[in-house]
Protein backbone atom coordinates (compact mmCIF):
# COMPACT_ATOMS: atom_id res chain seq x y z
CA UNK A 1 0.00 0.00 0.00
CA UNK A 2 2.79 2.33 0.90
CA UNK A 3 4.64 1.33 -2.20
CA UNK A 4 1.63 2.14 -4.35
CA UNK A 5 1.38 5.47 -2.65
CA UNK A 6 5.01 6.25 -3.48
CA UNK A 7 4.49 5.16 -7.04
CA UNK A 8 1.48 7.41 -7.44
CA UNK A 9 3.35 10.28 -5.89
CA UNK A 10 6.27 9.75 -8.26
CA UNK A 11 3.91 9.61 -11.22
CA UNK A 12 2.17 12.76 -10.10
CA UNK A 13 5.48 14.53 -9.71
CA UNK A 14 6.64 13.31 -13.11
CA UNK A 15 3.39 14.47 -14.67
CA UNK A 16 3.61 17.90 -13.13
CA UNK A 17 7.24 18.05 -14.14
CA UNK A 18 6.25 17.26 -17.71
CA UNK A 19 3.60 19.94 -17.63
CA UNK A 20 6.17 22.39 -16.31
CA UNK A 21 8.58 21.69 -19.14
CA UNK A 22 6.14 22.50 -21.90
CA UNK A 23 7.51 23.54 -25.25
CA UNK A 24 5.95 25.06 -28.35
CA UNK A 25 7.24 26.44 -31.60
CA UNK A 26 5.18 29.08 -33.35
CA UNK A 27 5.38 29.81 -37.06
CA UNK A 28 4.28 33.39 -37.55
CA UNK A 29 3.87 35.79 -40.46
CA UNK A 30 6.61 38.40 -40.71
CA UNK A 31 4.22 41.27 -39.93
CA UNK A 32 3.87 39.92 -36.39
CA UNK A 33 7.58 40.29 -35.67
CA UNK A 34 7.30 43.07 -33.09
CA UNK A 35 3.79 42.49 -31.75
CA UNK A 36 4.21 38.77 -31.14
CA UNK A 37 7.68 39.22 -29.66
CA UNK A 38 6.09 41.45 -27.03
CA UNK A 39 3.18 39.07 -26.41
CA UNK A 40 5.51 36.09 -26.03
CA UNK A 41 7.76 37.98 -23.61
CA UNK A 42 4.81 38.75 -21.33
CA UNK A 43 3.46 35.21 -21.70
CA UNK A 44 6.82 33.77 -20.67
CA UNK A 45 6.98 36.02 -17.61
CA UNK A 46 3.59 34.72 -16.52
CA UNK A 47 4.59 31.12 -17.34
CA UNK A 48 8.18 30.68 -16.20
CA UNK A 49 9.86 27.49 -17.31
CA UNK A 50 7.82 27.15 -20.49
CA UNK A 51 9.66 27.20 -23.76
CA UNK A 52 8.05 29.31 -26.47
CA UNK A 53 9.95 29.73 -29.73
CA UNK A 54 8.80 31.85 -32.63
CA UNK A 55 9.94 31.61 -36.23
CA UNK A 56 8.98 34.51 -38.49
CA UNK A 57 8.66 34.15 -42.23
CA UNK A 58 6.27 34.16 -45.12
CA UNK A 59 2.83 32.68 -44.53
CA UNK A 60 2.89 30.79 -47.80
CA UNK A 61 6.16 29.06 -46.98
CA UNK A 62 4.91 27.93 -43.56
CA UNK A 63 1.76 26.64 -45.21
CA UNK A 64 3.86 24.42 -47.46
CA UNK A 65 6.16 23.35 -44.64
CA UNK A 66 3.33 22.34 -42.30
CA UNK A 67 1.96 20.07 -45.02
CA UNK A 68 5.38 18.42 -44.98
CA UNK A 69 5.21 17.87 -41.21
CA UNK A 70 7.21 20.89 -40.13
CA UNK A 71 7.61 20.95 -36.33
CA UNK A 72 5.35 23.98 -35.71
CA UNK A 73 2.70 23.81 -33.01
CA UNK A 74 0.87 27.01 -33.82
CA UNK A 75 0.61 28.77 -37.16
CA UNK A 76 -0.21 32.48 -37.32
CA UNK A 77 -0.79 33.34 -40.94
CA UNK A 78 -1.11 36.82 -42.45
CA UNK A 79 -3.88 35.43 -44.65
CA UNK A 80 -6.61 33.34 -43.09
CA UNK A 81 -6.92 31.42 -46.35
CA UNK A 82 -3.78 29.39 -45.63
CA UNK A 83 -4.82 27.94 -42.24
CA UNK A 84 -8.29 27.33 -43.67
CA UNK A 85 -6.74 25.17 -46.38
CA UNK A 86 -4.72 23.26 -43.79
CA UNK A 87 -7.85 22.71 -41.70
CA UNK A 88 -9.63 21.30 -44.75
CA UNK A 89 -6.80 18.81 -45.16
CA UNK A 90 -7.16 17.74 -41.55
CA UNK A 91 -3.90 19.33 -40.44
CA UNK A 92 -5.42 21.56 -37.78
CA UNK A 93 -6.19 20.59 -34.20
CA UNK A 94 -8.31 23.67 -33.59
CA UNK A 95 -10.84 25.76 -35.41
CA UNK A 96 -9.38 28.44 -37.67
CA UNK A 97 -9.48 31.58 -35.59
CA UNK A 98 -9.28 35.08 -36.98
CA UNK A 99 -6.98 37.07 -34.71
CA UNK A 100 -6.37 40.36 -36.47
CA UNK A 101 -6.87 42.58 -39.46
CA UNK A 102 -3.66 43.94 -40.93
CA UNK A 103 -3.30 47.40 -42.39
CA UNK A 104 -0.91 48.63 -45.04
CA UNK A 105 0.94 51.93 -45.03
CA UNK A 106 3.06 53.93 -47.37
CA UNK A 107 6.43 54.31 -45.71
CA UNK A 108 9.73 55.94 -46.49
CA UNK A 109 12.97 56.15 -44.55
CA UNK A 110 14.16 59.35 -46.23
CA UNK A 111 10.97 61.28 -47.05
CA UNK A 112 8.11 62.22 -44.76
CA UNK A 113 5.57 59.75 -46.04
CA UNK A 114 2.90 61.09 -43.66
CA UNK A 115 2.56 64.01 -46.08
CA UNK A 116 2.34 61.71 -49.08
CA UNK A 117 -0.43 59.75 -50.74
CA UNK A 118 -0.25 56.92 -53.24
CA UNK A 119 -0.24 59.52 -56.04
CA UNK A 120 3.11 60.79 -54.72
CA UNK A 121 4.65 57.55 -55.97
CA UNK A 122 4.56 58.88 -59.53
CA UNK A 123 7.08 61.56 -58.48
CA UNK A 124 10.18 61.05 -60.66
CA UNK A 125 12.35 61.49 -57.55
CA UNK A 126 11.02 58.16 -56.37
CA UNK A 127 12.74 55.62 -58.58
CA UNK A 128 12.19 52.46 -56.55
CA UNK A 129 9.09 51.37 -54.64
CA UNK A 130 9.22 48.21 -52.56
CA UNK A 131 6.18 45.99 -52.06
CA UNK A 132 5.93 42.38 -50.95
CA UNK A 133 5.65 39.91 -53.80
CA UNK A 134 1.95 39.93 -54.78
CA UNK A 135 2.30 36.45 -56.20
CA UNK A 136 2.37 34.89 -52.74
CA UNK A 137 2.68 37.48 -49.94
CA UNK A 138 -0.68 38.63 -48.50
CA UNK A 139 0.59 42.19 -47.92
CA UNK A 140 1.87 42.31 -51.47
CA UNK A 141 -1.53 41.31 -52.82
CA UNK A 142 -3.22 44.10 -50.85
CA UNK A 143 -0.59 46.61 -51.99
CA UNK A 144 -1.28 45.67 -55.58
CA UNK A 145 -5.04 45.98 -55.04
CA UNK A 146 -4.64 49.43 -53.48
CA UNK A 147 -2.44 50.64 -56.33
CA UNK A 148 -4.89 49.24 -58.86
CA UNK A 149 -7.94 50.78 -57.24
CA UNK A 150 -6.41 54.27 -57.47
CA UNK A 151 -5.38 53.56 -61.05
CA UNK A 152 -1.64 53.79 -60.40
CA UNK A 153 -0.52 50.20 -60.91
CA UNK A 154 0.42 50.61 -64.57
CA UNK A 155 2.15 53.93 -63.90
CA UNK A 156 4.38 52.73 -61.08
CA UNK A 157 4.89 49.11 -62.05
CA UNK A 158 8.28 49.77 -63.66
CA UNK A 159 9.53 51.18 -60.32
CA UNK A 160 8.44 48.22 -58.22
CA UNK A 161 10.84 45.90 -56.47
CA UNK A 162 9.50 42.85 -54.68
CA UNK A 163 10.41 41.67 -51.20
CA UNK A 164 10.14 38.03 -50.26
CA UNK A 165 7.93 38.86 -47.29
CA UNK A 166 6.83 42.08 -45.63
CA UNK A 167 9.87 42.36 -43.34
CA UNK A 168 12.18 41.88 -46.30
CA UNK A 169 10.23 44.64 -48.09
CA UNK A 170 10.65 46.99 -45.14
CA UNK A 171 14.37 46.27 -45.17
CA UNK A 172 14.65 47.43 -48.82
CA UNK A 173 13.14 50.77 -47.74
CA UNK A 174 15.05 51.01 -44.46
CA UNK A 175 18.42 50.69 -46.22
CA UNK A 176 17.35 53.46 -48.59
CA UNK A 177 17.64 51.25 -51.65
CA UNK A 178 13.96 51.90 -52.32
CA UNK A 179 12.81 55.45 -51.54
CA UNK A 180 9.34 54.31 -50.58
CA UNK A 181 7.45 51.14 -49.93
CA UNK A 182 4.12 49.69 -48.94
CA UNK A 183 4.57 47.76 -45.71
CA UNK A 184 2.57 46.54 -42.74
CA UNK A 185 1.42 49.17 -40.25
CA UNK A 186 2.54 46.74 -37.55
CA UNK A 187 6.13 47.16 -38.73
CA UNK A 188 5.94 50.90 -39.42
CA UNK A 189 4.91 51.72 -35.84
CA UNK A 190 7.96 49.95 -34.43
CA UNK A 191 10.27 52.60 -32.93
CA UNK A 192 13.20 51.56 -35.11
CA UNK A 193 11.26 52.25 -38.29
CA UNK A 194 9.06 55.04 -36.94
CA UNK A 195 12.13 57.10 -36.04
CA UNK A 196 12.82 57.52 -39.75
CA UNK A 197 10.64 59.23 -42.32
CA UNK A 198 7.02 58.64 -41.48
CA UNK A 199 4.09 56.66 -42.78
CA UNK A 200 0.73 57.27 -44.37
CA UNK A 201 -2.10 54.86 -43.60
CA UNK A 202 -3.61 53.55 -46.81
CA UNK A 203 -7.43 53.64 -46.55
CA UNK A 204 -8.67 50.09 -46.12
CA UNK A 205 -11.50 50.62 -48.58
CA UNK A 206 -8.86 50.48 -51.35
CA UNK A 207 -8.16 46.81 -50.81
CA UNK A 208 -9.63 43.52 -49.62
CA UNK A 209 -9.39 43.05 -45.87
CA UNK A 210 -6.18 41.47 -44.63
CA UNK A 211 -7.85 38.97 -42.39
CA UNK A 212 -5.28 37.01 -40.45
CA UNK A 213 -5.98 33.65 -38.84
CA UNK A 214 -4.26 31.04 -36.74
CA UNK A 215 -4.57 27.35 -35.94
CA UNK A 216 -3.08 24.87 -33.54
CA UNK A 217 -1.53 22.29 -35.80
CA UNK A 218 -2.34 18.58 -35.72
CA UNK A 219 1.03 17.80 -34.24
CA UNK A 220 0.20 19.88 -31.12
CA UNK A 221 -3.24 18.31 -30.62
CA UNK A 222 -2.14 16.95 -27.23
CA UNK A 223 0.12 19.83 -26.26
CA UNK A 224 -1.55 21.73 -23.42
CA UNK A 225 0.87 24.62 -23.75
CA UNK A 226 -0.26 25.24 -27.34
CA UNK A 227 -3.83 25.48 -26.12
CA UNK A 228 -2.81 27.80 -23.29
CA UNK A 229 -0.97 30.10 -25.65
CA UNK A 230 -3.94 30.18 -28.02
CA UNK A 231 -6.21 31.12 -25.12
CA UNK A 232 -3.76 33.80 -24.08
CA UNK A 233 -3.78 35.18 -27.61
CA UNK A 234 -7.56 35.57 -27.39
CA UNK A 235 -7.28 37.33 -24.03
CA UNK A 236 -7.35 40.99 -23.19
CA UNK A 237 -3.62 41.50 -22.66
CA UNK A 238 -2.58 40.07 -26.02
CA UNK A 239 -5.36 41.90 -27.85
CA UNK A 240 -4.18 45.19 -26.33
CA UNK A 241 -0.69 44.58 -27.70
CA UNK A 242 -2.13 43.80 -31.13
CA UNK A 243 -4.05 47.09 -31.08
CA UNK A 244 -0.90 48.92 -30.03
CA UNK A 245 0.79 47.64 -33.17
CA UNK A 246 -2.01 48.89 -35.36
CA UNK A 247 -3.91 45.67 -35.94
CA UNK A 248 -7.69 45.71 -36.14
CA UNK A 249 -9.39 43.06 -34.03
CA UNK A 250 -12.07 40.66 -35.19
CA UNK A 251 -15.43 41.40 -33.62
CA UNK A 252 -14.58 45.04 -33.01
CA UNK A 253 -15.40 48.04 -35.13
CA UNK A 254 -12.31 49.05 -37.06
CA UNK A 255 -10.80 52.32 -35.96
CA UNK A 256 -10.18 54.87 -38.68
Amino acid sequence: MKRLHTLLLTLALAASGAAQAGKITIAAAADLKFALDEIVTVFKQANPGEEVGVIYGSSGKFHTQIQQNAPYDLYFSADIKYPQELAKKGLAASAVKPYAFGRIVLWSASLDASKMTLTSLTDPKITRIAIANPKHAPYGKRAEEALRSVGLWDKVQSKLVYGENIAHTAQFVQTGNAQAGIIALALAVNPELASKGGYWLIPDKLHQPLEQGYIITQRAADNPLAKRFADYMDGKAARAVMVKYGFGLPGEAASN
Binding site: S58, K61, K135, V161, E164, N177, A178
Partner: peptide
Protein backbone atom coordinates in the same frame (compact mmCIF):
# COMPACT_ATOMS: atom_id res chain seq x y z
CA UNK B 1 17.83 41.78 -56.57
CA UNK B 2 14.32 42.93 -55.70
CA UNK B 3 12.85 40.26 -57.95
CA UNK B 4 12.22 42.44 -61.03
CA UNK B 5 11.08 40.49 -64.11
CA UNK B 6 13.62 40.65 -66.93
CA UNK B 7 16.10 42.50 -64.73
CA UNK B 8 16.86 40.55 -61.57
CA UNK B 9 14.36 37.68 -61.50
CA UNK B 10 16.67 34.79 -62.31
CA UNK B 11 15.63 31.15 -62.56
CA UNK B 12 16.44 30.22 -58.96
CA UNK B 13 14.27 33.07 -57.64
CA UNK B 14 11.50 32.25 -60.10
CA UNK B 15 11.42 28.67 -58.79
CA UNK B 16 11.30 29.94 -55.21
CA UNK B 17 8.32 32.15 -56.13
CA UNK B 18 6.49 29.28 -57.78
CA UNK B 19 6.92 27.18 -54.63
CA UNK B 20 5.86 30.05 -52.37
CA UNK B 21 2.76 30.57 -54.49
CA UNK B 22 2.03 26.82 -54.16
Amino acid sequence: GGNIPGETRVASVQIYDHVEAL
